[in-house]
Design a binder for these strands. Structure first.
Lengths: 192, 192
DNA sequence: TCTTTTTGACACAGTGGTGTCCCATTATGA
DNA sequence: TCATAATGGGACACCACTGTGTCAAAAAGA
Protein backbone atom coordinates (compact mmCIF):
# COMPACT_ATOMS: atom_id res chain seq x y z
CA UNK A 1 0.00 0.00 0.00
CA UNK A 2 2.04 2.91 -1.28
CA UNK A 3 -0.93 5.20 -1.48
CA UNK A 4 -4.65 5.06 -0.91
CA UNK A 5 -5.12 3.11 -4.15
CA UNK A 6 -3.37 -0.16 -5.05
CA UNK A 7 -0.77 1.29 -7.40
CA UNK A 8 1.86 -1.41 -7.61
CA UNK A 9 -0.52 -4.13 -6.58
CA UNK A 10 -0.92 -5.04 -10.23
CA UNK A 11 2.56 -6.49 -10.42
CA UNK A 12 2.20 -8.48 -7.25
CA UNK A 13 -1.20 -9.81 -8.25
CA UNK A 14 0.19 -10.98 -11.57
CA UNK A 15 3.12 -12.93 -10.13
CA UNK A 16 0.90 -14.25 -7.37
CA UNK A 17 -1.51 -15.54 -9.96
CA UNK A 18 1.28 -17.09 -12.01
CA UNK A 19 2.58 -18.93 -8.97
CA UNK A 20 -0.86 -20.22 -8.06
CA UNK A 21 -1.53 -21.42 -11.60
CA UNK A 22 1.82 -23.14 -11.73
CA UNK A 23 1.18 -24.71 -8.34
CA UNK A 24 -2.14 -26.09 -9.51
CA UNK A 25 -0.67 -27.56 -12.66
CA UNK A 26 2.46 -29.03 -11.10
CA UNK A 27 0.90 -30.26 -7.87
CA UNK A 28 -2.06 -31.74 -9.69
CA UNK A 29 0.38 -34.12 -11.34
CA UNK A 30 2.48 -34.78 -8.26
CA UNK A 31 1.32 -33.60 -4.88
CA UNK A 32 4.80 -34.02 -3.46
CA UNK A 33 6.66 -32.15 -6.16
CA UNK A 34 9.38 -29.88 -4.76
CA UNK A 35 8.63 -26.19 -4.55
CA UNK A 36 11.52 -25.56 -6.91
CA UNK A 37 9.45 -27.26 -9.61
CA UNK A 38 6.55 -24.94 -8.91
CA UNK A 39 8.82 -21.91 -9.02
CA UNK A 40 10.32 -23.08 -12.29
CA UNK A 41 6.92 -23.65 -13.84
CA UNK A 42 5.88 -20.18 -12.73
CA UNK A 43 9.09 -18.77 -14.26
CA UNK A 44 9.95 -17.30 -10.91
CA UNK A 45 12.83 -17.64 -8.51
CA UNK A 46 12.41 -19.89 -5.52
CA UNK A 47 13.05 -16.86 -3.32
CA UNK A 48 10.14 -15.05 -4.87
CA UNK A 49 7.85 -17.98 -4.30
CA UNK A 50 8.77 -18.04 -0.61
CA UNK A 51 8.29 -14.29 -0.50
CA UNK A 52 4.68 -14.70 -1.57
CA UNK A 53 3.97 -17.97 0.24
CA UNK A 54 6.31 -18.48 3.21
CA UNK A 55 5.23 -22.06 3.85
CA UNK A 56 4.49 -25.00 1.61
CA UNK A 57 1.32 -25.33 3.65
CA UNK A 58 0.41 -21.71 2.98
CA UNK A 59 0.91 -22.22 -0.75
CA UNK A 60 -1.24 -25.35 -0.66
CA UNK A 61 -4.02 -23.56 1.17
CA UNK A 62 -3.89 -20.55 -1.15
CA UNK A 63 -3.92 -22.73 -4.24
CA UNK A 64 -6.84 -24.65 -2.81
CA UNK A 65 -8.74 -21.44 -2.19
CA UNK A 66 -7.96 -20.22 -5.69
CA UNK A 67 -9.17 -23.54 -7.08
CA UNK A 68 -12.42 -23.26 -5.18
CA UNK A 69 -12.81 -19.73 -6.49
CA UNK A 70 -12.13 -20.77 -10.09
CA UNK A 71 -14.50 -23.70 -9.85
CA UNK A 72 -17.09 -21.48 -8.23
CA UNK A 73 -16.78 -19.06 -11.12
CA UNK A 74 -17.44 -21.64 -13.83
CA UNK A 75 -20.15 -23.20 -11.71
CA UNK A 76 -21.88 -19.85 -11.55
CA UNK A 77 -21.64 -19.55 -15.31
CA UNK A 78 -23.11 -23.04 -15.59
CA UNK A 79 -26.26 -21.89 -13.80
CA UNK A 80 -26.81 -25.17 -12.01
CA UNK A 81 -30.26 -24.23 -10.84
CA UNK A 82 -31.56 -23.28 -14.25
CA UNK A 83 -33.23 -25.55 -16.78
CA UNK A 84 -33.65 -29.28 -16.57
CA UNK A 85 -31.37 -31.24 -14.26
CA UNK A 86 -30.03 -33.16 -17.22
CA UNK A 87 -29.02 -30.04 -19.11
CA UNK A 88 -27.56 -28.55 -15.96
CA UNK A 89 -25.52 -31.68 -15.38
CA UNK A 90 -24.11 -31.42 -18.89
CA UNK A 91 -23.11 -27.81 -18.29
CA UNK A 92 -21.52 -28.78 -14.99
CA UNK A 93 -19.39 -31.45 -16.64
CA UNK A 94 -18.26 -29.04 -19.34
CA UNK A 95 -17.45 -26.46 -16.71
CA UNK A 96 -15.31 -28.88 -14.73
CA UNK A 97 -13.41 -29.97 -17.81
CA UNK A 98 -12.81 -26.33 -18.64
CA UNK A 99 -10.89 -25.75 -15.41
CA UNK A 100 -9.38 -29.23 -15.33
CA UNK A 101 -6.12 -28.42 -13.56
CA UNK A 102 -7.89 -26.70 -10.70
CA UNK A 103 -10.34 -29.57 -10.35
CA UNK A 104 -7.65 -32.20 -10.32
CA UNK A 105 -5.66 -30.24 -7.77
CA UNK A 106 -8.58 -29.54 -5.47
CA UNK A 107 -10.14 -32.99 -5.44
CA UNK A 108 -7.40 -35.07 -6.94
CA UNK A 109 -5.66 -36.71 -4.05
CA UNK A 110 -7.27 -39.32 -1.88
CA UNK A 111 -5.32 -38.28 1.18
CA UNK A 112 -6.21 -34.64 0.97
CA UNK A 113 -4.87 -32.72 3.92
CA UNK A 114 -6.19 -29.33 3.00
CA UNK A 115 -9.58 -30.81 2.35
CA UNK A 116 -9.59 -32.42 5.77
CA UNK A 117 -8.64 -29.29 7.66
CA UNK A 118 -11.12 -26.79 6.27
CA UNK A 119 -13.64 -29.02 4.54
CA UNK A 120 -17.07 -27.99 3.38
CA UNK A 121 -16.95 -24.71 5.24
CA UNK A 122 -15.59 -22.76 2.29
CA UNK A 123 -16.63 -25.24 -0.37
CA UNK A 124 -20.20 -24.93 -1.65
CA UNK A 125 -19.47 -27.32 -4.51
CA UNK A 126 -20.60 -30.67 -3.03
CA UNK A 127 -23.92 -29.29 -1.81
CA UNK A 128 -24.60 -27.63 -5.13
CA UNK A 129 -24.06 -30.89 -6.94
CA UNK A 130 -25.90 -33.19 -4.56
CA UNK A 131 -28.81 -30.78 -4.72
CA UNK A 132 -28.67 -30.96 -8.50
CA UNK A 133 -28.74 -34.74 -8.35
CA UNK A 134 -31.66 -34.71 -5.95
CA UNK A 135 -33.51 -32.34 -8.23
CA UNK A 136 -32.86 -34.68 -11.13
CA UNK A 137 -34.20 -37.57 -9.14
CA UNK A 138 -37.36 -35.64 -8.35
CA UNK A 139 -37.73 -34.74 -12.02
CA UNK A 140 -37.49 -38.45 -12.74
CA UNK A 141 -34.42 -38.25 -14.97
CA UNK A 142 -31.83 -39.56 -12.51
CA UNK A 143 -31.82 -43.02 -10.98
CA UNK A 144 -33.90 -42.61 -7.80
CA UNK A 145 -32.20 -45.54 -6.11
CA UNK A 146 -28.72 -44.08 -6.43
CA UNK A 147 -27.14 -42.26 -3.50
CA UNK A 148 -26.70 -38.63 -4.61
CA UNK A 149 -23.24 -38.52 -3.02
CA UNK A 150 -22.28 -41.55 -5.08
CA UNK A 151 -23.50 -39.92 -8.26
CA UNK A 152 -21.49 -36.78 -7.54
CA UNK A 153 -18.38 -38.82 -6.90
CA UNK A 154 -18.91 -40.76 -10.11
CA UNK A 155 -19.18 -37.48 -11.99
CA UNK A 156 -15.87 -36.34 -10.55
CA UNK A 157 -14.24 -39.68 -11.25
CA UNK A 158 -15.30 -39.65 -14.89
CA UNK A 159 -14.13 -36.07 -15.36
CA UNK A 160 -10.76 -37.04 -13.87
CA UNK A 161 -10.52 -40.05 -16.13
CA UNK A 162 -11.34 -37.99 -19.17
CA UNK A 163 -8.83 -35.28 -18.29
CA UNK A 164 -6.15 -37.87 -17.64
CA UNK A 165 -6.84 -39.47 -21.00
CA UNK A 166 -6.70 -36.14 -22.78
CA UNK A 167 -3.41 -35.29 -21.16
CA UNK A 168 -1.88 -38.55 -22.30
CA UNK A 169 -3.02 -37.84 -25.81
CA UNK A 170 -5.36 -40.80 -25.79
CA UNK A 171 -8.35 -38.58 -26.41
CA UNK A 172 -8.81 -35.14 -27.94
CA UNK A 173 -9.57 -32.53 -25.33
CA UNK A 174 -12.81 -31.47 -26.97
CA UNK A 175 -14.08 -35.04 -26.72
CA UNK A 176 -13.73 -35.23 -22.95
CA UNK A 177 -16.94 -33.53 -21.89
CA UNK A 178 -19.20 -35.26 -24.45
CA UNK A 179 -17.73 -38.67 -23.70
CA UNK A 180 -18.08 -38.20 -19.97
CA UNK A 181 -21.65 -37.01 -20.35
CA UNK A 182 -22.57 -39.90 -22.61
CA UNK A 183 -21.09 -42.44 -20.22
CA UNK A 184 -22.77 -40.77 -17.27
CA UNK A 185 -26.15 -40.84 -18.93
CA UNK A 186 -26.13 -44.27 -20.48
CA UNK A 187 -23.33 -46.24 -18.89
CA UNK A 188 -21.33 -48.47 -21.13
CA UNK A 189 -24.16 -50.55 -22.54
CA UNK A 190 -25.72 -50.46 -25.96
CA UNK A 191 -28.73 -48.23 -26.58
CA UNK A 192 -31.15 -51.07 -27.25
CA UNK B 1 19.12 -73.06 0.65
CA UNK B 2 20.26 -75.20 3.56
CA UNK B 3 19.41 -78.42 1.81
CA UNK B 4 17.99 -79.58 -1.48
CA UNK B 5 14.46 -78.66 -0.38
CA UNK B 6 13.35 -75.19 0.74
CA UNK B 7 13.60 -75.84 4.46
CA UNK B 8 13.61 -72.43 6.05
CA UNK B 9 12.18 -70.76 3.02
CA UNK B 10 8.78 -70.85 4.68
CA UNK B 11 9.80 -68.24 7.21
CA UNK B 12 11.28 -65.95 4.63
CA UNK B 13 8.31 -66.31 2.33
CA UNK B 14 5.96 -65.42 5.14
CA UNK B 15 7.75 -62.21 6.16
CA UNK B 16 8.27 -61.32 2.53
CA UNK B 17 4.56 -61.68 1.93
CA UNK B 18 3.73 -59.65 5.01
CA UNK B 19 5.97 -56.83 3.83
CA UNK B 20 4.47 -56.85 0.36
CA UNK B 21 0.92 -56.82 1.72
CA UNK B 22 1.79 -53.97 4.06
CA UNK B 23 3.45 -52.09 1.22
CA UNK B 24 0.36 -52.42 -0.95
CA UNK B 25 -1.94 -51.21 1.81
CA UNK B 26 0.20 -48.33 3.00
CA UNK B 27 1.45 -47.14 -0.37
CA UNK B 28 -2.00 -47.39 -1.90
CA UNK B 29 -3.05 -44.68 0.53
CA UNK B 30 0.08 -42.57 0.19
CA UNK B 31 2.59 -43.34 -2.50
CA UNK B 32 5.23 -41.29 -0.71
CA UNK B 33 4.78 -42.82 2.71
CA UNK B 34 8.11 -43.47 4.46
CA UNK B 35 9.40 -47.02 4.46
CA UNK B 36 9.26 -46.94 8.24
CA UNK B 37 5.47 -46.83 7.91
CA UNK B 38 5.52 -49.91 5.68
CA UNK B 39 7.78 -51.74 8.12
CA UNK B 40 5.52 -50.81 11.00
CA UNK B 41 2.42 -51.97 9.16
CA UNK B 42 4.18 -55.25 8.38
CA UNK B 43 5.13 -55.57 12.06
CA UNK B 44 8.74 -55.81 11.02
CA UNK B 45 11.85 -53.85 11.80
CA UNK B 46 13.05 -51.35 9.25
CA UNK B 47 16.30 -53.33 9.04
CA UNK B 48 14.41 -56.45 8.06
CA UNK B 49 12.56 -54.60 5.36
CA UNK B 50 15.81 -53.38 3.86
CA UNK B 51 17.18 -56.91 4.18
CA UNK B 52 14.44 -58.18 1.89
CA UNK B 53 14.17 -55.15 -0.38
CA UNK B 54 17.40 -53.12 -0.45
CA UNK B 55 15.92 -50.22 -2.36
CA UNK B 56 12.65 -48.37 -2.21
CA UNK B 57 12.55 -48.89 -5.93
CA UNK B 58 13.02 -52.63 -5.53
CA UNK B 59 10.19 -52.78 -3.03
CA UNK B 60 7.94 -50.82 -5.36
CA UNK B 61 8.72 -53.13 -8.26
CA UNK B 62 8.20 -56.26 -6.19
CA UNK B 63 4.92 -54.99 -4.80
CA UNK B 64 3.82 -54.14 -8.30
CA UNK B 65 4.66 -57.63 -9.51
CA UNK B 66 2.83 -59.15 -6.57
CA UNK B 67 -0.16 -56.96 -7.35
CA UNK B 68 -0.19 -58.12 -10.95
CA UNK B 69 0.02 -61.70 -9.77
CA UNK B 70 -2.84 -61.27 -7.30
CA UNK B 71 -4.99 -59.52 -9.87
CA UNK B 72 -4.12 -62.19 -12.39
CA UNK B 73 -5.23 -64.84 -9.94
CA UNK B 74 -8.69 -63.40 -9.35
CA UNK B 75 -9.00 -62.62 -13.03
CA UNK B 76 -8.39 -66.26 -13.78
CA UNK B 77 -11.08 -67.20 -11.31
CA UNK B 78 -13.39 -64.72 -12.97
CA UNK B 79 -13.11 -66.62 -16.25
CA UNK B 80 -13.28 -63.54 -18.42
CA UNK B 81 -13.71 -65.51 -21.61
CA UNK B 82 -16.63 -67.59 -20.38
CA UNK B 83 -20.30 -66.73 -20.62
CA UNK B 84 -21.82 -63.52 -21.85
CA UNK B 85 -19.69 -60.41 -21.87
CA UNK B 86 -22.07 -58.74 -19.47
CA UNK B 87 -21.81 -61.53 -16.92
CA UNK B 88 -18.07 -61.65 -17.37
CA UNK B 89 -17.84 -57.92 -16.76
CA UNK B 90 -19.77 -58.32 -13.52
CA UNK B 91 -17.40 -61.02 -12.36
CA UNK B 92 -14.44 -58.84 -13.29
CA UNK B 93 -15.72 -55.96 -11.20
CA UNK B 94 -16.32 -58.23 -8.22
CA UNK B 95 -12.84 -59.68 -8.63
CA UNK B 96 -11.24 -56.25 -8.64
CA UNK B 97 -13.11 -55.16 -5.54
CA UNK B 98 -12.02 -58.36 -3.84
CA UNK B 99 -8.34 -57.43 -4.15
CA UNK B 100 -8.94 -53.74 -3.71
CA UNK B 101 -5.65 -52.79 -2.08
CA UNK B 102 -3.62 -54.41 -4.83
CA UNK B 103 -5.68 -52.75 -7.51
CA UNK B 104 -5.39 -49.32 -5.96
CA UNK B 105 -1.65 -49.74 -5.55
CA UNK B 106 -1.03 -51.02 -9.05
CA UNK B 107 -3.16 -48.55 -10.97
CA UNK B 108 -3.78 -45.94 -8.35
CA UNK B 109 -1.35 -43.15 -9.06
CA UNK B 110 -1.49 -41.00 -12.14
CA UNK B 111 2.27 -40.53 -12.24
CA UNK B 112 3.11 -44.19 -12.09
CA UNK B 113 6.83 -44.74 -12.42
CA UNK B 114 6.82 -48.49 -12.20
CA UNK B 115 4.08 -48.65 -14.77
CA UNK B 116 6.06 -46.48 -17.14
CA UNK B 117 9.24 -48.49 -16.90
CA UNK B 118 7.94 -52.01 -17.48
CA UNK B 119 4.51 -51.39 -18.89
CA UNK B 120 2.32 -53.93 -20.62
CA UNK B 121 5.11 -56.45 -20.98
CA UNK B 122 4.27 -58.25 -17.75
CA UNK B 123 0.71 -57.02 -17.48
CA UNK B 124 -1.90 -58.98 -19.43
CA UNK B 125 -4.71 -57.16 -17.66
CA UNK B 126 -5.45 -54.30 -20.09
CA UNK B 127 -5.58 -56.60 -23.11
CA UNK B 128 -7.83 -59.04 -21.33
CA UNK B 129 -10.27 -56.30 -20.49
CA UNK B 130 -10.23 -54.47 -23.81
CA UNK B 131 -10.84 -57.81 -25.48
CA UNK B 132 -13.77 -58.38 -23.16
CA UNK B 133 -15.18 -55.00 -24.08
CA UNK B 134 -14.75 -55.68 -27.77
CA UNK B 135 -16.48 -59.01 -27.35
CA UNK B 136 -19.33 -57.26 -25.59
CA UNK B 137 -19.61 -54.79 -28.43
CA UNK B 138 -19.79 -57.60 -30.94
CA UNK B 139 -22.44 -59.30 -28.85
CA UNK B 140 -24.35 -56.04 -29.01
CA UNK B 141 -24.50 -55.46 -25.25
CA UNK B 142 -21.84 -52.76 -24.97
CA UNK B 143 -22.01 -49.35 -26.61
CA UNK B 144 -20.43 -49.88 -30.04
CA UNK B 145 -19.41 -46.22 -30.32
CA UNK B 146 -17.38 -46.23 -27.12
CA UNK B 147 -13.61 -46.63 -27.27
CA UNK B 148 -12.82 -49.93 -25.52
CA UNK B 149 -9.85 -48.35 -23.76
CA UNK B 150 -12.16 -45.66 -22.42
CA UNK B 151 -14.59 -48.27 -21.14
CA UNK B 152 -11.80 -50.13 -19.35
CA UNK B 153 -10.58 -46.95 -17.74
CA UNK B 154 -14.09 -46.09 -16.65
CA UNK B 155 -14.40 -49.51 -15.07
CA UNK B 156 -11.21 -48.94 -13.09
CA UNK B 157 -12.26 -45.44 -12.10
CA UNK B 158 -15.60 -46.62 -10.75
CA UNK B 159 -13.98 -49.47 -8.84
CA UNK B 160 -11.56 -46.97 -7.31
CA UNK B 161 -14.38 -44.65 -6.40
CA UNK B 162 -16.34 -47.45 -4.80
CA UNK B 163 -13.35 -48.69 -2.81
CA UNK B 164 -12.56 -45.18 -1.66
CA UNK B 165 -16.12 -44.72 -0.51
CA UNK B 166 -16.11 -48.02 1.35
CA UNK B 167 -12.91 -47.12 3.11
CA UNK B 168 -14.35 -43.85 4.31
CA UNK B 169 -17.34 -45.66 5.68
CA UNK B 170 -19.65 -43.92 3.22
CA UNK B 171 -20.73 -47.21 1.73
CA UNK B 172 -20.77 -50.81 2.99
CA UNK B 173 -18.10 -52.90 1.38
CA UNK B 174 -20.53 -55.47 0.05
CA UNK B 175 -22.36 -52.72 -1.81
CA UNK B 176 -19.35 -51.62 -3.82
CA UNK B 177 -19.43 -54.21 -6.60
CA UNK B 178 -23.22 -54.09 -7.18
CA UNK B 179 -23.24 -50.30 -7.18
CA UNK B 180 -20.34 -50.08 -9.60
CA UNK B 181 -21.93 -52.64 -11.90
CA UNK B 182 -25.27 -50.87 -11.85
CA UNK B 183 -23.69 -47.52 -12.65
CA UNK B 184 -21.56 -49.07 -15.37
CA UNK B 185 -24.54 -50.69 -17.01
CA UNK B 186 -27.08 -47.92 -16.78
CA UNK B 187 -25.23 -44.74 -15.94
CA UNK B 188 -26.91 -42.40 -13.51
CA UNK B 189 -30.18 -41.96 -15.31
CA UNK B 190 -33.57 -43.35 -14.45
CA UNK B 191 -34.66 -46.69 -15.97
CA UNK B 192 -37.52 -45.23 -18.03
C1' DT C 1 16.33 10.88 -14.37
C1' DC C 2 15.88 9.27 -9.67
C1' DT C 3 13.67 6.64 -6.12
C1' DT C 4 11.40 2.68 -4.62
C1' DT C 5 9.90 -1.82 -5.33
C1' DT C 6 10.58 -6.28 -6.92
C1' DT C 7 13.32 -9.76 -8.27
C1' DG C 8 16.81 -13.72 -8.78
C1' DA C 9 21.01 -15.92 -7.39
C1' DC C 10 23.49 -17.54 -3.70
C1' DA C 11 24.65 -19.27 0.82
C1' DC C 12 23.27 -21.40 5.06
C1' DA C 13 21.40 -24.48 8.60
C1' DG C 14 17.66 -27.53 9.89
C1' DT C 15 14.93 -31.65 8.88
C1' DG C 16 13.19 -36.12 7.55
C1' DG C 17 13.77 -40.10 4.83
C1' DT C 18 17.21 -43.37 3.06
C1' DG C 19 20.54 -46.93 2.87
C1' DT C 20 24.33 -49.37 5.46
C1' DC C 21 26.42 -51.60 9.10
C1' DC C 22 26.92 -53.92 13.49
C1' DC C 23 25.52 -56.50 17.47
C1' DA C 24 22.67 -58.60 20.81
C1' DT C 25 18.48 -61.30 20.98
C1' DT C 26 15.18 -64.51 19.43
C1' DA C 27 13.34 -68.20 16.65
C1' DT C 28 14.02 -72.39 14.03
C1' DG C 29 15.25 -76.95 13.13
C1' DA C 30 18.64 -80.83 13.74
C1' DT D 1 20.69 -79.03 23.74
C1' DC D 2 23.12 -76.82 20.11
C1' DA D 3 24.22 -74.51 15.77
C1' DT D 4 22.38 -71.66 12.45
C1' DA D 5 19.16 -68.45 10.56
C1' DA D 6 16.40 -64.47 11.22
C1' DT D 7 15.24 -60.44 13.50
C1' DG D 8 15.07 -55.73 15.81
C1' DG D 9 17.28 -51.76 17.44
C1' DG D 10 20.59 -48.40 17.29
C1' DA D 11 24.24 -45.59 15.20
C1' DC D 12 25.86 -43.43 11.21
C1' DA D 13 26.57 -40.72 6.91
C1' DC D 14 24.11 -39.09 2.96
C1' DC D 15 20.95 -36.47 0.33
C1' DA D 16 16.98 -33.77 -1.24
C1' DC D 17 13.86 -30.41 0.21
C1' DT D 18 12.89 -26.60 3.05
C1' DG D 19 12.89 -22.10 5.09
C1' DT D 20 15.70 -17.88 6.02
C1' DG D 21 18.60 -14.30 4.98
C1' DT D 22 21.58 -11.23 2.20
C1' DC D 23 22.79 -8.54 -1.70
C1' DA D 24 23.23 -6.73 -6.16
C1' DA D 25 20.62 -6.15 -10.37
C1' DA D 26 16.44 -5.22 -12.81
C1' DA D 27 11.91 -3.16 -13.17
C1' DA D 28 8.28 0.15 -12.23
C1' DG D 29 6.57 4.49 -11.36
C1' DA D 30 7.09 9.57 -10.13
Amino acid sequence: MTSTENPRAGVRARTRGAILRAAATVLAHDRNAPLSAVAEAAEVGRSTLHRYFPDREVLLAATYQEALSEIGRVMDEAEVEKGSALEAMRRVVAAHVEVGDWVVFAFGDTANEVFDDAPAATDPEPDLLTNLVRRGQEEGVFDPEADPAWVVQVLWALVFTGLERAERGQMPRHAVAPTVVRTLERGICAPG
